[in-house]
Measured scan of single mutants.
Amino acid sequence: NQASVVANQLIPIQTALTLVMMRSEVVTPVGIPAEDIPRLVSMQVNRAVPLGTTLMPDMVKGYA
């Protein structure tokens, strides 16, 4: 099973992502693949992302 990127904390809207905000976890449905974590650093979320939420491509500006 492929690991996805999951929020390690509440990430407020417009926040630039850092490594400490994300973790990898095998979840359903599958979100952004964990191997993309380095690419996500400094990208902004376009909505508030609660703790434990799987990051989906449409939540990160410039990802999809």
Results as ranks from 00 to 15, higher is better:
Gln9Leu: 10
Pro33Tyr: 07
Ser24Tyr: 08
Val49Glu: 03
Val30Phe: 13
Thr15Arg: 07
Leu17Pro: 01
Ala16Trp: 10
Ala48Cys: 08
Gln2Trp: 14
Pro12Gly: 06
Ala34Phe: 06
Ala3Val: 07
Glu35Ala: 15
Glu35Leu: 11
Pro50Asn: 10
Met22His: 02
Met21His: 08
Val26Gly: 04
Ala48Val: 13
Pro12Ala: 10
Asn8His: 06
Ala64Gln: 15
Pro50Ile: 06
Val5Cys: 06
Gln44Tyr: 15
Leu10Thr: 12
Pro12Asp: 09
Pro57His: 07
Arg39Ile: 12
Thr18His: 05
Arg23Phe: 04
Ile13Ser: 13
Ser24Ile: 10
Ala3Gly: 10
Thr53Gly: 11
Ser4Cys: 05
Ala7Ile: 04
Gly31Asn: 03
Pro33Lys: 08
Ile11Glu: 00
Met59Ser: 05
Gln14Gly: 15
Ile11Lys: 00
Val41Tyr: 04
Val45Glu: 01
Asp58Arg: 08
Val20Lys: 15
Thr28Lys: 12
Ile11Phe: 03
Lys61Asp: 15
Gln2His: 14
Glu35Phe: 15
Ala48Thr: 14
Arg47Thr: 13
Gly52Glu: 03
Val41Thr: 05
Asn46Arg: 10
Thr15Phe: 05
Val41Asn: 03
Thr53Leu: 09
Pro57Val: 06
Asp58Cys: 08
Ile11Leu: 07
Thr18Glu: 10
Pro57Gln: 06
Val27Asn: 02
Gln2Ile: 10
Leu40Pro: 00
Thr15Lys: 07
Thr54Val: 10
Met56Val: 10
Ala16Ile: 11
Ile11Arg: 02
Gly52Phe: 04
Leu51Ser: 12
Asp36Ala: 10
Val30Ile: 12
Val49Gln: 03
Ser4Leu: 01
Glu35Lys: 15
Ala48Pro: 12
Pro12Tyr: 05
Ile11Ser: 00
Met21Phe: 04
Glu25Ser: 12
Gly31Gln: 01
Ile32Ser: 00
Val49Lys: 01
Gly31Leu: 02
Val41His: 03
Val20Tyr: 12
Lys61Ile: 15
Val60His: 03
Leu19Cys: 07
Val6Gly: 02
Asn8Ser: 11
Ile32Phe: 01
Tyr63Pro: 04
Val20Leu: 14
Lys61Trp: 12
Val41Arg: 06
Pro50Glu: 12
Ala3Lys: 13
Arg39Trp: 10
Ala64Arg: 05
Ile32Tyr: 01
Asn8Cys: 07
Leu19Pro: 09
Val6Tyr: 02
Val41Glu: 05
Arg39Glu: 08
Pro50Gly: 09
Gly62Arg: 06
Arg23Ala: 06
Val30Gln: 14
Val49Ala: 04
Leu10Ser: 13
Val20Ile: 10
Gln44Ala: 09
Val30Met: 12
